[in-house]
Design a protein around this nucleic acid. Sequence first.
DNA 1: AGGTCGGCCTGGCAGC
DNA 2: TGCTGCCAGGCCGACC
Length: 283
Amino acid sequence: MPELPEVEVTRQSFADRIRGARVEAVRLGKPLRWPLGCEPDSLRAQVVGEVARRGKYLWLEVERGGLLMHLGMSGSLAFSSAPALPGPHNHFDLVTTHGTLRLTDPRRFGEAFLIDDADLPLRFSRLGVEPLSEDFTPEELGRVAAGRTAPLKSFLLDQSAIAGVGNIYADEALYRARLHPLSPAGSMKPEHWLALRDGIVAALEAAIDAGGSSIDDYRDGRGEKGSMQERFLVHTREGEPCPSGEGEVVRIVVAGRSTYFCPGCQVRLRRKPRRRRPARRAK
DNA sequence: AGGTCGGCCTGGCAGC
DNA sequence: TGCTGCCAGGCCGACC
């Protein structure tokens, strides 16, 4: 499942190689979530600029705007100079003078569409704070979580709160922060904001260092697998001992998502009491 | 407005 | 062996 680390590793694996390339053709396979948004031929002869990332989105700069791409659940991007003939799951090829960028996505939850520069701020304004940016402070996390009654696990999956965290790294971040996934997000105190901020950053950075997680068939732009799945602390480790040495990892379902955690060391916070009425005088 | 749920999609797997 | 049915999950839109 491509989350922020996988998208970032993918970006790094081809950004330098595609920069400055000229588009020669666009080939479409089966329809993805959204239509391309332009005639494929209209991209021809445009020069590719920077490849940026926001949350789980990749943004390929072209002359008339940008190509916004999302890997959905099962998507991967490959950039190569001699791609094989398109297979049944290759739904988008960007053929350039430097090579072909190919989106492979069996489940077709991915996206690739052209967007005007003018529309980009609006599009990205729906996304929450970027967790690997300087803006992601404990105070910012606290501000975003304030008043929320949803469980921390649901909160972390909400892209309008924090952009880029998905099911895997939500579990890993909550374990690192020693916070129970069912704790109401708004019940955190400042020390929890700090622990969770640090947990999210550490989980994402460790995954980027490991080349991402390849649970099913994730590959980066060079076709390399990641190894983070071998280093998960709790995710998919139901029944295994907690890495801290005590207790056992359990699996529950939160917001329809498999959620792995250690009940022994992840503290369940209680809902903040509503503002109390003035204490009654003792009789 | 926050929260929840169903739909999208298909490979893989359990159960018969 | 082959069929059925369920599950995984990111995101969107509908609804409460």
